[in-house]
Amino acid sequence: MVAVGVIGSGAWGTTLALLLARKGISTTIWDHRVERALEMQRTRENSVFLPNIRFPDNLSITSDIAEAVQAKDLLLLVTPSQKLRENLRLLAPYLAPETLLVSASKGIEITSLQRMTEVIAEELPDWRERIAALSGPNLSREVAEGKPTAAVVASDVPEVAIQARTIITCSTFRVYTSNDVIGVELGGALKNIIAIAAGFNVGLGYGENAKAAIITRGLAEISRLGVAAGANALTFAGLAGIGDLIATCASPLSRNQQLGRRLAEGEKLNDILQSTHSVAEGVSTTQAALKLAARYQVEMPIARQLSLILFEGLDPHKAVPELMMRDPKGELEGFA
């Protein structure tokens, strides 16, 4: 019998827990708030993030970190990226040596510029050979409703990726494996930046041509930085690259796309962030990505303009001419 713990009760954590429980796996979600855990256990649904989707009987919810972690074959780490490190320190005393650790958080830690698996390896060095990252075009609501999709799980240890794939794969969620952890994680994190820009496109009414250009040139920025950081360029042509980018940029279900649209319609960033339960990872990732771009001497013009809008008050209407009138370049400039 396989047992899985899910650290994080947001939309994506709950969705992954639903997938596993429906597969017949004993699954436990951890929420650090006692009252929220009790409510979900009582009502048998996550009314905040996934209302009206019933929990299977073999899905339990707890606020006891030991209960969520002990004797688990696999832990899915699905917390906001900037909170991952402190949650790892909470769970560390209860972690079994054989447990697989799979990060499903898509972000970059601002203070260290580390990817999520790097944070895990630093905090839990004895589990370095049992870490993987999960990513792909996976909008929570659609997956929770049983609509089919695919994802990729990456690990430096092929057997770990295969073990994780075996546990997570089900009839509506097909998982592939990869050994390019850098590419899979950066693809998943950086696409949130481009999704905010795609939301601006919606809010400003610029149309389908502009959206296609944002996605395509966004992919160029992601790929340039990813390759400079050591990723395989082909990863960005896959599920964690263009796949996730299309889903997140095109769908109104995307929290990052929603944030960009609302900003373009005149709302203030702080007001938007305070009005939503979900974390739009693209905001913090924009800051981290530009620091990484400076480290690797890579151009990220979309991310740069987005940063000016988010943090320096630039009018979105002025950002577009800035991008359009940059010095002319070859389409593949910046790639080795």
Rank of each mutant, 00 (worst) to 15 (best):
A247K: 04
M116E: 04
W30E: 05
V152G: 06
E86T: 14
G260Y: 10
G334T: 10
G188P: 06
A240Q: 02
E331V: 12
V102I: 13
K147G: 00
R85K: 10
S105F: 03
M1Y: 04
K211N: 06
E159H: 08
N46W: 04
N201D: 15
V102P: 02
R224C: 12
F311C: 09
V298L: 04
L314K: 14
T235H: 10
R42F: 15
L190S: 00
A280S: 13
R33F: 15
A237P: 02
V283D: 06
L225R: 07
G260V: 02
G282H: 06
T172D: 08
P321D: 14
L332R: 12
T166E: 11
I25C: 04
G188D: 11
A220H: 13
L59Y: 04
E35C: 04
G199H: 02
K329F: 05
I167Q: 12
V48C: 04
S284C: 08
R165Y: 10
Q274F: 08
A336H: 08
I242S: 01
L204H: 04
T216A: 04
I272N: 05
S103M: 09
Q70C: 09
P252R: 11
E312C: 00
E333M: 15
Q257C: 14
I120N: 01
I215V: 11
R261V: 03
V143N: 03
P158M: 09
Q305F: 14
S140A: 15
A3H: 08
N46L: 10
D57H: 11
C170E: 12
E122W: 05
A233V: 15
R261H: 14
L234I: 10
E265R: 08
R217L: 10
T172Q: 05
A303D: 01
F49N: 11
S307G: 03
A280T: 05
E129F: 13
V69Y: 06
A121Q: 09
A164M: 01
S155D: 09
N46V: 01
G136M: 01
P97A: 11
D64T: 15
